[in-house]
Simulated assay, not measured.
Amino acid sequence: MTEIDREAVLQAARAQAWDEGKKCEHCKGAGELPGGRKLIHTFRGGFGADWDLSAVEEFIGKADRVEEGRGLFGPPLVVATVGAEQVAFEINTKLPVGGA
């Protein structure tokens, strides 16, 4: 994997974060909760979770390395490493950022 521009990753994360009060646009999940929080799917080891956008921004901001990767089932990922901790974020850096 090669290192990628951190600011571009953060912009992509902000554009692709989904509102927990709606169905996820990425996986079409039916888990609708009253919300307002912006979330990003993450993977650590073999487990997935949804992180608040602010936690994603914080982790990527302090990461030693930020690289592009690909998930087991094909989704584009951004892999950030802080010390020995590695987290993959479901962020597609190839999608255009901006607009409505």
Rank of each mutant, 00 (worst) to 15 (best):
V56M: 15
L33D: 00
I91H: 10
Q86C: 09
A49H: 14
K23S: 04
G46A: 05
L95R: 03
V56C: 11
E20R: 09
A100K: 15
G83T: 09
G35S: 06
G69C: 07
K28C: 01
V56N: 15
A88I: 11
L72T: 15
K28V: 00
R44I: 13
R37N: 03
T93Y: 09
P34N: 02
E57D: 13
H26I: 12
K23P: 14
Q86D: 04
Q16K: 06
F89L: 08
W18L: 10
Q86N: 07
I40G: 00
P75L: 13
V66P: 05
G71S: 15
S54C: 03
D19S: 00
G74C: 11
S54I: 05
P34R: 05
G29R: 07
Q16L: 11
K38W: 09
A100V: 09
F89H: 03
K38D: 12
D64K: 07
T81E: 14
K22H: 05
L95I: 00
F73V: 15
A100H: 13
G36C: 05
P96D: 11
F73A: 15
G45V: 06
W51K: 14
V78Y: 13
P76S: 04
G74Y: 14
E85L: 15
A80K: 07
A80H: 06
C27H: 01
R44G: 15
V82K: 01
S54Q: 12
V66A: 04
V82G: 10
T42R: 08
E58V: 05
K62I: 13
E67K: 14
L53I: 11
P75I: 10
